[in-house]
Design a protein around this nucleic acid. Structure first.
Lengths: 360, 360
DNA sequence: CTGAAAGCGCTTACAG
DNA sequence: CTGAAAGCGCTTACAG
């Protein structure tokens, strides 16, 4: 391969095709307004010179970066409490799917991190005000969130992955979000067990995440309610009789302990719906140790752990999440990020997608 | 927060500070050449207007994007063979550390994917020729690699994470790389077991990765040799007597089977060095099942699995890898990506970093 | 040390 | 349908 000095500019393409710079630009950005004969001549020149537009120039002039930013989080914790077997799995998969979906739409994705000390808000301000990105994908938004306030005030397109649990403004159009319906997921797992003639179906959730009423205030409570309500519907039992649930931290050891607690409460236990793959594995290992291989277990996330150990799990379907997110920010078929007026448009500001039960 | 229309431009800052646009630019890019009194006046105006430079304009004019690109890979496999418990763990962690290190140096990171069908080469050409990035971080390079050839020909800065195993040109300056020294890692694990008075130390590697001679041709062979040579050194045995090794695919089940094979070959087995955390866990679970809790096990990657199950593992120290990678591309203290002439400069084109043994 | 001019490579707005 | 002009917001090169 010969040394390549630099790539051609519009000017050179125009000279070769014997048209104006502007016509070449039109062939690229509005081909339909160029006469087909001219267009072909220009395309030939573009191809011949291997012309690739300078994106900085395009962005400066058009005032569109065709880029979005997304935060990356660390998967390791220095010491501290256990975060389970796949702490960053969902986030990393989501980012992968987002990049893939964005690239398909001609959008670049800039990854950023927030290291100890610097504020995410100042990073977002810099991204937006330097015109480096057109929009932002947020994660882990809260009710009073300075990021939301800034993005709203600066009129920047954005979307959150995940609901701001417990926030009064969860359904406010000023915090548009897309999320997975955990409740319907654990309900589906419960239904599957029931259909396999399991009648004593327990639940293992995260500690401090058991709803006091029928309303979920966290991901864990939401997944609990899916099991609870579905079991009530199927069994015809009263609320107070649906009580085969226990809770623990996100660790193998918690899963083992929870399994023992459930067995103690109901020796006839024959299935367990778990809030996570980590707890499901702990539970499964405890049953194996006791030779109770007939008890079925389900987890959440469809992580490599669930595949490797062969238990059912709920896949969050992140490529669909990513595509839906871009559909909100760009419209169904558009190629540009734009601000959506949810109060006026037909686009829903809050999207809930079904997880997919992977039966193993 | 009030609606913000748009951020200020250099022109407005200059007007407020009562200097020329050029002086404001100098305060930003070459503060030392501006008289301190002028500089303060300008900084006050910048602060007052919350001025943030337009990056597209800066990039267009300066011909530097201050960005690099890195590829993201999917962690899920559709069916197929097992890829273990943490298939994308190292790659994802590396990307996180790279973004963090790059941001500290004022460099943006654009993530890209290569979906089935499109070629990575054409993506790289577009990145480079559209002036979207100044350099590329490659992964999984091979001996004859069209990506290397293109980047070389276009005179673009780049660096590979990982060695092109088995390639004659592994030490060619046209493929600069940074990698982790797996061999010294498994040697360190072997030494640790020896120091704990373990004398029958086995090894579990990946299938088809056992060196025929003393030369490694893959990551798995490299890690095997670390165990082999260290054990030979410590035990004083001859080559043919160091044979307590077995191999399998990257799965829990393989680890279990390998553990049984090692026990069969040497019932006095008291430690096992494994090529991966997945194999280590399979091995550990098999020992636990048999009540052989005195046998120590080590893995590789220091993934959440090793933390959760409490066995020793080798941490790849990816933040150091990322920082070292940028040191190659930017120099020790620079803030710009530049092409390195390895044949002339003192920078080494091939960097091998030590993994860190995490003892549990 | 500071400023007036040029220009990076495009797209926009508009005249023809 | 096509082209001449303007200009996006900076940095560079250079004159003073």
């Amino acid at each position: 391969m010969p040394k390549v000095e630099r790539s051609a500019s519009l000017r050179e393409v125009a000279a070769l095709a014997d048209v104006s710079i502007q016509t070449v630009s039109n062939v690229l950005n509005a081909p339909h307004i160029v006469k087909s004969k001219t267009r072909e001549k220009v395309l030939w020149a573009i191809n011949d010179l291997e012309y690739i537009p300078n994106l900085s120039a395009r962005r400066l002039r058009s005032k569109k970066s065709s880029s979005i930013a997304v935060r990356l989080d660390p998967n390791f914790s220095e010491g501290q409490d256990s975060k389970g077997l796949a702490p960053g799995f969902i986030q990393d998969e989501f980012v992968y799917c987002l990049v893939e979906a964005a690239n398909t739409r001609g959008i670049k994705v800039i990854a950023y991190t927030v290291a100890n000390g610097d504020s995410e808000l100042s990073k977002l301000k810099t991204f937006i005000n330097s015109r480096d990105v057109d929009g932002i994908i947020l994660t882990a938004t809260r009710e009073k969130d300075e990021r939301l306030e800034f993005l709203e005030a600066s009129n920047s397109p954005f979307l959150s992955f995940g609901r701001p649990w417990g926030a009064a403004g969860m359904f406010s159009t000023s915090n548009p979000w897309i999320d997975i319906d955990g409740r319907s997921g654990t309900a589906a797992a419960t239904q599957m067990f029931w259909d396999s003639n399991k009648r004593t179906i327990g639940f293992i959730g995260w500690e401090n995440q058991q709803p006091k009423d029928g309303v979920a205030r966290s991901t864990g409570e939401d997944r609990y309610l899916g099991w609870f309500e579905k079991l009530r519907e199927l069994s015809g039992k009263s609320r107070s009789d649906i009580s085969l649930a226990t809770f623990g931290g996100e660790s193998i050891e918690s899963g083992r302990r929870a399994a023992r607690e459930l067995l103690h409460a109901a020796p006839e236990l024959d299935a367990v719906v778990c809030v996570s793959d980590t707890l499901a594995l702990g539970c499964l290992l405890e049953f194996q140790k006791k030779g109770l291989n007939h008890i079925l277990v389900s987890g959440f996330d469809n992580s490599p752990v669930s595949k490797e150990f062969g238990f059912s799990s709920l896949d969050q379907n992140l490529s669909e999440v990513a595509e839906s997110a871009l559909k909100v920010l760009m419209g169904a078929t558009g190629f540009q990020i734009r601000k959506v007026d949810f109060s006026a448009e037909h686009t829903n500001a809050h999207i809930l997608l079904e997880p997919k039960l992977i039966v193993r």
